[in-house]
Amino acid sequence: MTREPVLTIRDLHLAFGRWGRKSNVLHGISLHVGAGEKVALVGESGSGKSVTARLAMGLLQESRATHATGSIRFDGIEAVKGGPEIARRRGNRVAMIFQDPTSALNPTFKIRGQFREVLRSAEPRLSDAEADRRAEAALAEVSIPDPARALDSYAFQLSGGMNQRVMIAMALANRPELLIADEPGTALDVTVQAQTLKLMGDLAATRGTAVLLISHNLGVVREFADRVYVIYRGRMVEHATTKQLFAAPRHPYTQALLSAIPKISGGGLPDLPERSPDFERPLIVHEGCGEPAEVV
């Protein structure tokens, strides 16, 4: 039996620009993430991975300068042409973790007020005391040593790692069905980053949350994801299980990426071009990674 994936993106095209000066950013992106699945979308800067996430979140809307076609379905809600009400309709069922936690938090309010606001977006009548109790529990869950003190802090008083945990706690507080994490912890230390990934992994395992990780770091992807999409300049180039991709990458671009990464086992650096026509070759889908069955 096939369940409809939590998130399904089909043939997504995106262009920015006006008055005939269009620049194409996405050229037909398709991907899906099922309940409890950890999927990664990996690519370099400018590949289109972050705009894909923004479109899926409803943070980027069709406008005179933004032209999107194709389909993004989240639990039966169509996001591409959905208009501004998408954000309201998907409500707290989709959450996003951003790259830089300190700039994602409001610098002029203490964490306490921001956390109450997040909780009240799901339950408007929540009392202060109950909201604070839940916020403290959520902060304790992400291993913040003194939750009460964190609530009374401004973002700038906490370290980057602490802010990241606060962001995660907020994102998870309303138990989302889909979590999109855009380079979480890239600005943080490796040990903090490992903890962030562990938290997200636990969430997928225990609550069946669908997680879409957007990353440029193949090492992080290897540790975290079940399945991987590789995106290059607005096109998917390879789709595989994590095991398949790292054991036997088949697309020239993926192969170049993997060999360009410095290894702790040594071996120096390869002589590789930054760009090559080979990187533009069509999508390679590994066995068992096809499109999900259509659900009517």
Binding site: A194, L218, F246, I261, I264, S265
Partner: peptide, 11 residues
């Protein structure tokens, strides 16, 4: 070293 995300079996 133990926390470095790696990409090969050897690593």
């Amino acid at each position: 070293i133990g926390a470095v995300p790696v990409v090969t079996e050897e690593e």
